[in-house]
Design a protein around this nucleic acid. Structure first.
Lengths: 164, 164
DNA sequence: GGACAATTGTTGTCGTCAACAACAATCTTT
DNA sequence: AAAGATTGTTGTTGACGACAACAATTGTCC
């Protein structure tokens, strides 16, 4: 067993079948402790759950919110442009927009300069709705701040700034 | 339009259909900039892709790695204990273990003290395999460090420590 | 100007993953 | 012993990322 990375001796009771009750939080994570990806994944799950819960009344999920926000700030974008900017596949964006268009929050307008593409716009209803979504999202963000601390949240945003 | 959260005037060319070419990275994210969840999501996608690529030869995904690591460090755990510790649903863990057991990395041993549960163990083969996975995972972690910087990575781990 | 390559939106498939619900077998409680 | 809780399992649903193929349209190159 070539000892290269984190060698960890199996903890207490490496026996078999039988075992004493384990207090669930005294279970060692071993090498996982040093992996940013693991921590990030757990945090992301928490943060999405809070977002979904906080925006539960208006039934808006994180991805939908990101699409609405970008369209709201950049009216006339093509689907391709939105997809690229948000790192969403254009195939997936189609369904997202279908849903948002059915809810009368967004409309696809056929572009006259490029008849392949659509120009994305918020409806009037979509704009007032987005304003409300933004208030709720800000509330969610305060939950995040309360959870990890104001300074930590800002440092986090700073560290991950160039992934956005 | 009650100005509560981030009011942002639609950028250039709020017109309709026709529009000039947009350079794709000059598209404003508006309120998204201030949301930790968005940055975390984008980062998590990047980090998982790198993990999957780096461990591509051995065909191990992040979740599988986390399961193997925890079982390796805590032999004899029940499926329930593993699931709870990793925040995985026990229903999902069943399939994960089915796969890992078929690959002879893990074995379920019927517990004698509680005949409902199984005691999870790595096979001998599983232990040597895990050692290799850990080396590759460490390599992946160096990619992360190279991407966001050594100090930032450590700060990140520290900030998110209690989500693990 | 006309053939060929690239782009846009769309449809469809596949695999991962979280969230539930239901169930049989087995403890635990009272 | 009866009622309730827990464990592993199966199945369903929906969000999501990754691909592949396609028609319509645009762009390029000779």
């Amino acid at each position: 067993m070539t000892a290269t990375a984190s060698q960890t001796s199996p903890r207490k009771r490496a026996g078999n079948g039988a075992a004493r009750r384990i207090d669930a939080d005294e279970i060692g994570l071993d090498a996982l402790i040093g992996h940013a990806g693991y921590a990030v994944r757990r945090f992301q799950i928490w943060i999405f759950q809070d977002f979904i819960k906080t925006l539960g009344d208006v039934d808006i999920r994180p991805t939908q919110y990101s699409v609405l926000t970008v369209i709201g700030a950049n009216p006339g974008l093509s689907q391709m442009a939105v997809a690229k900017r948000l790192g969403i596949e254009r195939a997936r964006l189609v369904h997202l927009l279908d849903s948002l268009e059915q809810r009368r929050l967004v409309k696809r307008i056929k572009s006259k300069t490029d008849r392949r593409s659509h120009a994305m716009h918020l409806t009037t209803q979509g704009e007032t709705a987005l304003a409300k979504f933004k208030r709720l999202a800000a509330e969610h963000e305060r939950h995040v701040e309360a959870r990890i601390g104001k300074a930590n949240r800002e440092r986090l945003l700073q560290i991950l700034a160039d992934f956005t």
